[in-house]
Write a protein that binds this DNA or RNA. Structure first.
Lengths: 148, 148
DNA sequence: TTGATTGCAAACGTTTTGCAGTGTT
DNA sequence: AACACTGCAAAACGTTTGCAATCAA
């Protein structure tokens, strides 16, 4: 955990590692794969630093996104959600959003690469990034529904 | 055009086809593949009915979305954008969003079906819908950039 | 020391809501 | 005539910004 924080400090290049930024990053590290919103991070951060302001959370998230330390997601619930980039591999992943319980499941599979290749060739469109979300019902919710 | 409107009127099932709703639908029909925002639709609708209110636009769009007459998209510009479902075929399509000129290009290709099949099998996730967006640079912008 | 960063409160842009009045069926 | 629907204005929501004070380097 400390190692991760140290790595992120290095990625800040030039920007200061303030206590507030540390608290935000720690909250993100302690909640991997959670896709936290700014408000949720604010509540978590407040546990560690009661005086932290919501604006600081937003400004920190903007900075971290700019430095590609995290990704901003939009799952259609009216707020941005954030996820630390797992730098071990720059592997894109997709999200399954359960329409029943709102759970988000990650899919690592990169079959999409085929599609990207086709698009680049046929449309002359140079792809930089993609957002892929599948909406449906997860196994658990699907089973529950069939029981009722 | 009149045929399309008639079809949509039938899809309204039980809900009234008011002049305001007609104006919104007409504006959508007259601007196919435009991905209009609520505000943009408001301006278009006002040309046909100067007294129409923005709240009515939003309420109409909510209704049309609920009835699956249109799709709501989120391209990350802070507002929802709407597109009539082309009911001739329930064919999903993807969007290419140009990071330079913001143009949106549609891709009909459904290679994604392979991926969906895999996900359903491996994750037990029953897919209802998907959102796929590719961000990159369109041919025109890419060529311009290379010239400079 | 000094410019980057902070908290606060006010402002922002989009969307939603309460309500009294209107109009479609 | 009934009740779905409307316009308006105010409120709600997530997010951004101006500013004076503070702090990390």
């Amino acid at each position: 955990m400390k190692k991760e924080l140290e790595r992120i400090r290095e990625q800040l290049k030039g920007h200061k590692m303030t206590p507030q930024r540390r608290v935000v990053v720690q909250s993100l590290l302690e909640n991997p794969d959670q896709h936290l919103s700014a408000e949720e991070l604010y509540i978590l951060a407040k546990e560690k630093d009661a005086d932290i302001g919501l604006a600081t959370i937003y400004r920190t998230l903007d900075l971290l996104e700019e430095l590609k330390i995290l990704h901003r997601h939009n799952f259609g619930d009216g707020r941005s959600r954030y996820e630390l980039s797992q730098l071990q591999s720059e592997h894109h992943h997709h999200h399954l959003v359960c329409l029943t319980c709102s759970k988000i499941i990650e899919v690592e599979e990169d079959l999409l690469q085929q599609l990207e290749f086709l698009i680049e060739k046929e449309k002359g469109f140079r792809i930089i990034d993609h957002r892929v979300q599948f909406y449906g019902h997860c196994e658990t919710c699907d089973e529950k529904k069939n029981k009722v």
